[in-house]
Amino acid sequence: MKVMWYFTHKEILEAWRKHHLLIIGLIFMIFGIESPLIAKILPDILHSSFGSNLVINIPQPTSVDSWQQFYKNITQMGIYVLAIIFSGFMSQEVSQGTLVNLIAKGLPRFIVVLAKFLVAYLQWCGAILLAFVITWGYTAYYFPDNKSPQPLLGLVPLLIFGLFFTALLLLGSTLAVNNYFGFLFAAGSIIALTILNMWKSVQRWNPVALMTDNLRLVQGTEKLAHISPALMLTLGLTIVLVTLTIIIFNHKRL
C-alpha cells in the first residue's frame, strides 16, 4: 500500500506542477460565480433584448433558476473541461515511456491504474465541490427562498457519476492511440447513453440520470430512491471499467 501512496504522491505533484489544479480551480470558480449571476440577470437581459413594450410576465428569478444554471454549466461544460484536461493521463505516459523505468523497479501496473483513477477523481470532486460551495453561498444570499430545500441531494449523484466518467476516461486513455482519444471515448459514451435515454424504460437505469435529475432532487420533487437503479448500475459499471482497464494495461507493451 505504501507504493500506492508514492505513486499517488507523484500524480498529485504532476497535477500541481502542470498547472492542472490551478486551471481546474479557477475554471470551476468561474462556473460557481456565473451560475447564480446568470440566474439573477437573465430577466434583465430578456427585458432589454425584447424591449419593455412587450409585456410578458418574466417571473422573478428564484434559487431554482440558480441551481438550474449550476447543473447546466457543470454537466454541459464542466465535465468536458475536466475530460479534456485528463484525456492524456495514461496515453501520454505510455507514449513518452516514462513508466518503463518505474515498472522495471517494481511498481505494480494495477497501482498505476488505481492511482491515476484516484487522483483524477479527487480533482473531479474538488472541482465540483468548489463550484457548488460558491453557488450555494450566492444562492443563499440572493435567493433566500425555500424552493430548493435539498441542495446537497442534487450533488450526490453528480459525484457518483464522476466515478463512472473518470473510469471511462481512464479506459479510453489506456486504449488510446493519441492524447485526445480518452476525451473522445468518454464524450462518445455519454452521447450514446443520452441517445439511449430516448427509451423511457431505460431512464431509471441509465447512468446519465445522475446528471439529468439533479434539479428535481434539489427541489425535492424526486427522491434519490427513484434513480437508485441508475446509481447501482453506475457503481457496477465503474468497477467493470476499472477492472477492464487494469487487464488491458497489464497486457500493454511499454
Partner: peptide, 28 residues
C-alpha cells in the same frame, strides 16, 4: 437600467469573476 448600473448592482459577482479571469490570464 444603464450598463453602469447593471455592473454596479452585480459587483459582488463581477469583482471575483474579474479577479479569477485575470489570474488565469496572467498565469497563462
Amino acid at each position: 437600467m444603464t450598463d453602469a448600473n447593471f455592473f454596479f448592482d452585480n459587483l459582488p459577482f463581477f469583482i471575483p469573476l474579474i479577479i479569477v479571469e485575470l489570474v488565469l490570464m496572467i498565469t497563462a
